[in-house]
Nucleic acid binder design. Structure first.
Length: 825
RNA sequence: GCUGGUGUAGCCCAAUUGGCAGAGGCAGCCGACUUAAAAUCGGCAAAGUCUGGGUCCGAAUCCCAGCACCAGCACCA
């Protein structure tokens, strides 16, 4: 037998694919299309196991769909701008561009070595000026429409990355990249008005039935839409104070108000009160509390009475206005009506400061007594102590009270959102320059389209001494105002790299197009993306931005649909030793080592077989040996017979078959059906691999009986089918075996086998017979036996009779193809 | 704290969605090959499904209560 020299085999076919441009595709209206997308990698230097898992899944699907007759687009590129390149420049004196290009070259080599079916002519890198040109072009279109704008706002500053971050990138008060604690700073920054699409982002989820609910849930939480009402509370000696509430039905229970320490009217309320000085001091202290901790509710509730009072516009009661650290600016109006009887936070605050608690919602089953209550009641019930509104359920009370407030001109239904506009400016070099200049005369002026791209200067100094390197390049900063021709200062902020990834999947369609970001005809053919596979960690960053970007492009008239991705499939993480595999934990596995030891086909097969693609994968070096042995056995099997099969005329499978042949054929067709089901809808690639192994076992078992007989056509069919079914998973072995079977290059264009239902059907079945739940006998019946015959045979079985003799048969359940259950008394 | 997911041989995972708990792999044991070892090949053994209740002829699967782990959300008024 010849050795399984995976290294030689894999390289040979990789070269052949490259030379034959096997995976290049163009639009072909005659064939159905399939756009199979994976998340493009950041060129950090190494492909890691998480990438491999992602790309193995998409590669199997891409190859499978191609065999099913689809015109498949399965592209790859590089998310090539971003901080690590610049940090490397500071640390090691390598230019970010060189660092990035070198990393891309190395990682590309790794991807090629894994045999992924990419159309490399479509490769893109976001650091190419020909790519970020279009970031700038989009930015200018958004600037024209007020979607991009500049404003001063409190923003998240990462002291370690020396730049501001978007809200999404500073969750929990930590920088998403380096986990430093972010600081709040008041700065002039560029924003994209994603909030213009906040309703669509939620409502269009109805168009995404093939997205996992947990991702949609996360996005829904992030947008944080909440329906309620705004109500103005009259303030003694001042303008009314506006609050937002989702529980206007409890307004009669509002016994005090609370404003955030930063509320603009705090000073007005405090001025002239009896304890002015002390109050101010207390408020100052509340302001000094850590804002993040306050938001997260990790700080004990504290407050102070401002000295001023307001009137509850429904109960007409005089109620005090407090300042409290649990009320936040930037959500609602920064002021609340406090209903301690029915809101946990208000209850806690009221108990602490001895403020009155009133019950205005009465549950069905018990009576609430404010003096006895240990917690707020926020369940359902009917309104009480609510004047003309008594006796209503919550929904009805809210509707009527809102209508009443509206009629009196003191309130209205209102919707609030948690989502903030997307802060996209970064004070760093290695990003897309924001294409505007500041002119003394004309203010902010966009760079004209014909002057794009604004390219990054090559000679910026990377000292690491604070400040954006771009500011230190006079030839970059000094500009001419496109409008008046006078001197202007060029913007030195660059764009968030999430801008690049928000639309890269459109650029794959026309990667070098100079007239626009993409060819609309190609978009009409290829979009939407049929399958998008990637890490779940992008659920609210990249995937929200991408949805926004498509909607924005739609409003520019560039596309005609609302959503770019039909089916999203988040793959599971890779763990080792029970922990997420990551550089920082030092538990990573290098794909290169695996390839060297076992080959790419083994690595691919292993990573797919060990767990369902959506589950966490627990890495275990020893398990790799298992699939490697499987490939060895396949190799041996083919090695023994390929030459014979290749050398003879292909005769048809005989109609009359021996039991062994019949059984092998059945297994072949059952396997086709199983793997097709597993791959097609459920993406259960792990069980598909198991089915391949089973088929190999079955073929090996029949080898002695069939290989050298006139029934060899059955054996040949089995081997050919095994190769075809295996080829999307282990494509190099697939090609090699296909060739050795005497068939033409390439297996990637062979039609996927079709299961013959008749062939797959069992002739006879063994059924268990249960008596009172215990298996007492077994009967063999023809597969299509009538229920009555099965029943008769089951009851006639001697072992069964032993247990039914002399007893009354109460019931006989026949489950066709499964078992018979007899109940006796 | 809330929501969702998961819990099956020593380990990773299956079980046609209520029908005989086992497809596949790892590890283990036995054997073949080998001077020997590794690699390779063949075979064997192993859990009654996290716990406790319930429904049913029949439950890993459905229901109730709890436990463990994972993920997301969490003063958002």
């Amino acid at each position: 037998m010849t050795d399984y020299r995976f290294d030689d085999i894999e390289r040979r076919w990789q070269e052949r694919w490259a030379a034959g441009r096997t995976f290049e595709v163009t639009e072909d209206p005659a064939r159905p299309k399939y756009y199979c997308l994976e998340m493009l990698p950041y060129p950090s230097g190494d492909i890691h196991v998480g990438h491999v898992r992602n790309y193995c899944i998409t590669d199997v699907i891409a190859r499978y769909k191609r065999m099913r007759g689809f015109n498949v687009l399965h592209p790859i590129g590089w998310d090539a701008l971003g901080l690590p390149a610049e940090n490397a420049a500071i640390k090691r004196g390598v230019h970010p561009e060189k660092w990035t290009r070198d990393n891309i070259a190395g990682m590309k080599r790794q991807l090629l070595r894994l045999g992924f079916s990419y159309p490399w002519s479509r490769e893109i890198a976001s650091c190419d000026p020909e790519y970020y040109h279009w970031n700038q072009w989009f930015f200018l279109r958004m600037l024209e429409r007020g979607i991009a704008y500049r404003k001063k706002a409190p923003v998240n500053w990462c002291p370690s990355c020396q730049t501001v971050l978007a809200n999404e990138q500073a969750e929990g008060g930590e920088c998403w990249r380096c986990h430093s604690k972010v600081e709040e700073r008041e700065m002039d920054q560029w924003f994209l008005r994603i909030t213009a699409y906040q309703d669509e982002l939620v409502d269009d989820m109805a168009q995404l039935p093939q997205w996992p609910e947990r991702v949609l849930q996360q996005q829904r939480n992030w947008v944080g839409r909440s329906h309620g009402a705004e109500v103005d509370f009259p303030v003694e000696g001042g303008e009314p104070l506006r609050i937002f509430t989702t529980r206007i039905d409890t307004i009669f229970g509002a016994t005090f108000m609370v404003v955030a320490p930063e509320h603009p009217r705090v000073e007005e309320f405090v001025r002239g009160s009896s304890d002015e000085g002390k109050t101010r001091e207390a408020i100052q202290r509340l302001r000094g509390q850590d804002r993040r901790a306050r938001q997260a509710g990790q700080v004990e509730k504290e407050g102070v009475f401002t000295g001023r009072s307001a009137t509850n516009p429904f109960s007409r009661e005089r109620i005090p206005i407090w300042v409290g650290n649990f009320v936040l600016t930037g959500y609602g109006t920064g002021a609340i009506m406090a209903v301690p009887g029915h809101d946990e936070r208000d209850f806690e605050f009221a108990r602490k400061y001895g403020l009155p608690i009133r019950v205005v919602i009465q549950p069905k089953d018990r009576a609430l007594d404010p003096a006895e209550m240990e917690a707020a009641y926020d369940g359902p019930g009917r309104t009480v102590n609510s004047g003309a509104f008594d006796g209503l359920d919550g929904g009805e009370a809210s509707r009527r009270m809102t209508a009443d407030a509206e009629k009196r001109g003191i309130g209205r239904g209102a919707v609030t959102y948690r989502l903030k506009d997307w802060l996209i400016s970064r004070q760093r070099y290695w990003g897309t320059p924001i294409p505007v200049v500041y002119c003394e005369k004309d203010g902010i002026v966009g760079v004209p389209d014909d002057q794009l791209p604004v390219e990054l200067p090559k000679d910026a100094p990377f000292t690491g001494e604070g400040g954006n390197p771009l500011e230190k390049v006079p030839t970059f900063v000094q500009a001419v105002c496109p409008r008046c021709g006078g001197p202007a200062r060029r913007e030195t902020d660059t764009m968030d790299t999430f801008v690049d990834s928000s639309w890269y999947f459109y650029r794959y369609l026309s990667p070098h197009r100079a007239e626009g970001p993409f060819d609309p005809t190609a978009v009409r053919y290829w979009f939407p993306i049929d399958l998008y596979v990637g890490g779940i960690e992008h659920a609210i960053l990249h995937l929200v931005y991408s949805r926004f970007w498509t909607k924005m492009m739609r409003d520019l008239g560039l596309v005609t649909f609302d959503e770019p991705v039909t089916r999203l499939f988040p793959q599971g993480m890779v763990h080792k030793g029970g922990e997420v595999m990551s550089k920082s934990r030092g538990n990573t596995v290098a794909p290169d080592d695996m390839i060297k030891a076992y080959g790419a086909d083994t690595l691919r097969l292993y990573i797919l077989s060990v767990a369902p693609p959506e589950d966490a994968l627990e890495w275990n070096d020893q398990n790799v040996a298992g699939v490697h042995r499987f490939l060895h056995r396949v190799w041996g099997l083919l090695d023994r017979h390929a030459a014979t099969i290749a050398g003879e005329t292909r005769s048809p499978v005989p109609a009359e078959l021996s039991p062994v042949a019949r059984s092998l054929r059945r297994k072949v067709h059952q396997t086709i059906r199983r793997i097709t089901d597993d791959v097609e809808e459920r993406l259960k690639l792990n069980t598909a691999v198991s089915a391949l192994i089973e088929l190999e076992h079955a073929i090996a078992d029949a080898e002695g009986a069939l290989a050298e007989t006139k029934e060899r056509p059955v054996f040949r069919e089995a081997l050919e089918t095994l190769v075809l079914l295996l080829s999307p998973f282990a494509p190099h072995v697939g090609e090699e075996m296909w060739e050795r079977l005497g068939r033409r290059f390439s297996v990637v264009d062979r039609p996927w086998p079709v299961a013959d239902a008749g062939m797959a059907r069992e002739d006879e079945l063994e059924l268990a017979v249960q008596v009172n739940g215990k298996v007492r006998g077994r009967i063999t019946v023809p597969a299509q036996a009538a229920e009555d015959d099965v029943r008769r045979k089951a009851l006639g079985d001697p072992k069964v009779e032993e247990h039914t003799r002399g007893k009354e048969i109460v019931k006989v359940v026949v489950v066709p193809g499964r078992l018979v259950s007899v109940v006796v008394r």
